[in-house]
Nucleic acid binder design. Structure first.
Length: 302
DNA sequence: AGAATTACCTGGCAGC
DNA sequence: TGCTGCCAGGTAATTC
């Protein structure tokens, strides 16, 4: 489920319920996630106030009092949901309502943060993760960027951070398929299988093309192809965030509603269907690259 | 050293 | 219906 747009959607959903509130109590129901939850996590978190929710690539960063940050990664199947809120917070960022009163826990609800506020708010946020590839860490705020996984990350895939010059320089030395290079978090941080497929389709570039063919031109400037690719990446990520992410097998928004970007996929999971590009006439094909499914149109993606 | 493969886990679905 | 095999948004360890 969760690539950058999905994690950003989670961040926006949790922000109004968590910021300014205090973690009153923590229930650890199952500590053996991708990495075991830190010993004493419940006691460490209890009593801390939530100052801010940030995101870096696919990592959710929850800044707490006393200079500590809770780091949450959703893996393949993780989600946070909001339960039992006593009041409806205002909604400054446009994320939808913040209530999801499922009311009971299931076997995959591994961590429960009970929140309280001076305003009388009482509620909880619940981490659910069937496959348990996700994890939660607690680290000093000033050291978060040095954590393994975070320290190696490339730039965010947004128009503000990702330039054609940077991408051309990064891809130039790589002897690997373009698809694989774009999945590498050291190049661009936050792209996953779906949005790489979608961005390559929009840029009309084949996932099989060697990454080094996008190296800078002889005059040092980025080629037209790289500029197309950068624009496609930034656009697809921005549109997906705007749509609340993609909801595939399970839903991911903290309030229980679904993102709807999955309805806008041009190639992902569309094997055998006609290419959506006008007058292309191609048929979407599926192939496997570095163990992951790639979907692309062999006619218009070159 | 860099790139490809494997491991980690559970659930859903297609096919029989 | 129930079994088997395959597939799934992620990262990191291992192998080549």
């Amino acid at each position: 489920m969760p690539e950058l747009p999905e994690v950003e959607t989670v961040r926006r959903g949790l922000e109004p319920v968590m910021v300014g509130r205090t973690i009153r109590r923590v229930d650890v129901r199952r500590p053996d996630l991708r990495w075991p939850l830190p010993a004493g996590l419940a006691d460490s978190l209890a009593g801390r106030e939530v100052f801010a929710l940030r995101r870096r690539a696919k990592y959710l960063l929850i800044d707490l009092s006393d200079h500590h940050t809770m780091v949450s990664h959703l893996g393949m199947s993780g989600s946070w949901r909001i339960e039992s809120a006593t009041e409806r917070p205002s909604d400054p960022v446009g994320a939808s309502a913040h209530y999801y009163a499922r009311g009971k826990l299931d076997a995959h609800d591994h961590l429960v943060l009970h929140l309280g506020g001076a305003d009388g708010f009482v509620g909880s946020v619940v981490y659910n993760d069937p496959r348990r590839f996700g994890f939660v860490l607690l680290e000093e705020t000033s050291r978060v960027e040095q954590l393994p996984g975070l320290s190696v990350l490339g730039v965010e895939p947004t128009a503000a951070d990702l330039s054609a010059g940077y991408l051309a320089e990064m891809l130039g030395p790589r002897r690997t398929p373009l698809k694989s290079a774009l999945l590498d978090q050291r190049v661009i941080a936050g792209l996953g299988n779906i949005y790489v497929c979608e961005a390559l389709w929009r840029a009309r570039l084949s996932p099989r093309r060697n990454a080094s063919t996008l190296k800078p031109l002889a005059n040092g400037k980025p080629s037209e192809r790289v500029r197309r690719l950068v624009a496609a990446i930034a656009a697809v990520i921005e549109e997906a965030i705007e749509a609340g992410g993609s909801s595939l097998r399970d839903h991911i928004r903290s309030d229980g509603t679904m993102g709807y970007f999955q309805h806008r996929f041009d190639v992902y999971d569309r094997e055998g269907k006609p290419c959506r590009r006008p007058r292309c006439g191609g048929v979407v094909r599926r192939l496997v690259q570095s163990g992951r499914s790639t979907f692309y149109c062999p006619v218009c993606q070159r």
